[in-house]
Design a protein around this nucleic acid. Structure first.
Length: 585
RNA sequence: GCACCCGUAGCUCAAUUGGAUAGAGCAUCUGACUACGGAUCAGAAGGUUGCAGGUUCGACUCCUGCCGGGUGCGCCA
């Protein structure tokens, strides 16, 4: 039985061995296996072309030599051929497909196979990270959704993941806010909706400070008092943060997000002194105009645009806390990698931050974690401009999710009016929220994306509802047949796949490993979305062509096996995206 | 001014980071078993990948120059 989860990895190993056996110097040949266009088979190796070019040999004979040196086990599993200028093509035989599917019968089986990718690594994922005292709005959506999906993918593939919510809970905005709280706080309003009230107060404080220098002075003094530990201000600050966190948590609950750590900027208050000292001792920073700054002379921009690590008034800013966070994550969590799921407009900041951290760590002789800015584009309205309400305000995330659920409810009620109301509500929550998440994840994160209710909640195309529908339909087959999905007794009689629909579906299923690899190598969940969408489409084709519940027990077992594995992969994949699944809809 | 990103079918997006004939969905058109859930499926049509050069066996992808759009840039995050 075939047990290798990662078929591409297996083929690459076999090709290396075959190359060595046919006299090619080890290290000069990278197999370069990838999934192929189905016309050419399942997998293709492109590496011969590059290797032949380097060594000055003709690629075609080289490819033939390597192909004929492949082990018997590979030839048993794959039909091997050489095509074009020197591609080596592999078509999986039905028996191999069957073996793979039998060997991967549960989520645990898949996880065991996948976990080789990042075993032993610790990844800190910094995502969501909203500012306290403000409503989460549509601008906070992508970081939360993409960050969660990446964290889940990393965990599934073997990494130890630390999910860290780097809340903006410290800084200049608190002076103005406290100033306003002491004068205009409405206790009744605070009781009703604390964030709303704090947001209102912040706006008052902000505009007062802007138009009145005296207010600005008092606000600044309030901030200094807070930072000095004044009990009254500190109590107010705590109250603001507690209210903020519990409001955020309500959103996170709906999105299925749970952080391991919530180490906001304030957490680093007592850690910034060390940063100032470290940076100047390491010779990385220099004084400039009363501030402590870092220049990078070798960089086209940062030779003139400094990173300010300490303001001229002596206070820290976000650059300081970000540096302190790198150190803490490195020392305390032993991070091998740190990811920042943050808007692409902050690209300059992160480039500067990483340059600085690398120089500093190198000076100290410390291992630098891999640092990566996982950027994403802006959510745009139908007019192509950043999404706003008609009044021109930010769209609150609660309102956005509520509207998604409401639209999903209308849809479910239209399609399945016979379901009890509470079930339709439950389905609507999953479909509505899932549609928002999926619309975000299914697109390359780096580009801006157009927010469209109609496309998002639609049942057609690459949407959450399409995937969830495929799941519901498979579940329905098992209900009707009266067997549990994955019941070994129902599958044990299966023989190798025969019809075009069966074979195409099985070939798609074994490529789950590749979808994970693609999504993780580039930290782009849309590769997994695309795979799941194509899998669901392949299932629908199969379902329309081949009846599952047939009299022939062998054919039935074969098809039930395919249904069960399709369900498994769809549910596993969707859950890795952070989206919940359902039984029927 | 400097720096970065983007430009692919009418529309919204892909293209495994240099691989084979650039793929999907929507919209348009043609079909499908009295339905294991038709919220489906099969098919047709739709392209000089912004423009012009270059690099090589091979370019949407890399380089150069234009054109068009966006973003960021000393004490906010």
């Amino acid at each position: 039985m075939h047990r290798e989860f990662d078929l591409i990895g297996e083929l690459e190993g076999a090709l290396r061995a075959a190359a060595a056996a046919s006299g090619i110097e080890p290290g000069t040949f990278e197999p370069g296996v990838r999934t192929a266009d189905p016309r050419h088979g399942d997998f293709q190796a492109n590496g011969v072309l590059a290797a032949a070019k380097r060594s000055g040999n003709a690629p075609r004979p080289m490819a033939e030599a390597i192909a004929s040196a492949l082990s018997g086990a590979i030839r048993e599993g794959f039909e091997v051929s050489v095509a074009g200028p020197g591609f080596i093509n592999f078509a999986a035989r039905p028996q191999l497909l069957l073996g793979w599917l039998k060997a991967h019968a549960s989520r645990e089986d898949l996880a065991a196979g996948a976990s080789a990718a990042h075993a032993g690594e610790t990844w800190v994922v910094d995502y969501s990270s909203p500012n306290a005292a403000k409503q989460m709005h549509v601008g906070h959506l992508r970081s939360a959704v993409i960050g969660e999906a990446i964290a889940r993918l990393l965990g599934f593939t073997g990494a130890r993941v630390v999910r860290d919510n780097h809340i903006g809970d410290w800084g200049t905005q608190y002076g103005k806010l406290i100033w306003a709280c002491k004068r205009y706080l409405d206790e009744a309003a605070l009781e009703r909706d604390p964030i709303d009230e704090f947001e209102r107060l912040y706006k008052i404080g902000n505009s007062a400070a802007e138009s009145d220098a005296e207010v600005m002075e008092v606000a600044r003094a309030e901030l200094v008092k807070l930072q000095a530990g004044d009990p009254e201000n500190l109590a107010l600050w705590r109250r603001i943060n507690e209210a903020s966190l519990s409001a955020f948590q309500r959103i996170y609950d709906r999105l299925g997000i749970r952080f391991d750590e919530t180490l906001g900027e304030s957490f680093y208050n007592d850690k910034v002194e060390r940063i100032y000292a470290e940076l100047s001792e390491a010779g990385v920073s220099s004084p400039s105009e009363g501030a402590q700054v870092v220049f990078h002379p070798e960089h086209p921009r940062f030779k003139t645009q400094p990173m300010i690590v300490r303001k001229s008034d002596g206070a820290a800013n976000y650059a300081t806390t970000d540096l302190a966070a790198i150190l803490y994550r490195s020392e305390h969590f032993g991070a091998s990698s740190i990811l920042y799921v943050v808007d692409k407009r902050q690209a300059d900041h992160f480039e500067q931050l990483f340059l600085t951290a690398r120089k500093w760590f190198a000076q100290r002789g410390w291992a630098v974690p891999k640092l990566e800015h996982v950027d994403f584009g802006t959510v745009l309205g139908e007019d192509g401009k950043p999404l706003k309400t008609r009044a021109g305000d930010h769209v609150r995330l609660t309102d956005l999710l509520d509207e998604a659920v409401q639209r999903a409810y209308a849809l479910v009620t239209g399609k399945s009016p016979e379901f009890p109301e509470d079930e339709r509500r439950r389905i609507a929550e999953i479909v509505g929220v899932g549609s928002v998440q999926y619309a975000d994840l299914s697109q390359n994160r780096s580009s801006d994306y157009l927010f469209s209710w109609d496309k998002m909640i639609s049942l057609e195309g690459n949407t959450a509802a399409y995937l969830l529908y495929a799941i519901a339909r498979i579940r329905s087959i098992f209900r009707r047949q009266g067997v549990e999905c994955g019941d070994p007794a129902a599958e044990s009689g299966a023989d190798a796949f025969q019809t075009p629909g069966e074979i195409a579906l099985a070939r798609r299923l074994v490529k789950f490993a590749d979808a994970l690899r693609l999504a993780l190598e580039s930290l782009r969940p849309h590769f997994l979305c695309l795979y799941l969408y194509e899998l669901a489409g392949e299932f629908s084709t199969f379902y329309n062509a081949d009846k599952v519940i047939v009299a022939d027990p062998v054919a039935r077992a074969r098809r039930l096996l395919l249904c069960s594995r399709t369900l498994l992969v769809l549910e596993t994949g969707i859950s890795l995206l952070g989206i919940r699944t359902l039984e029927r809809m």
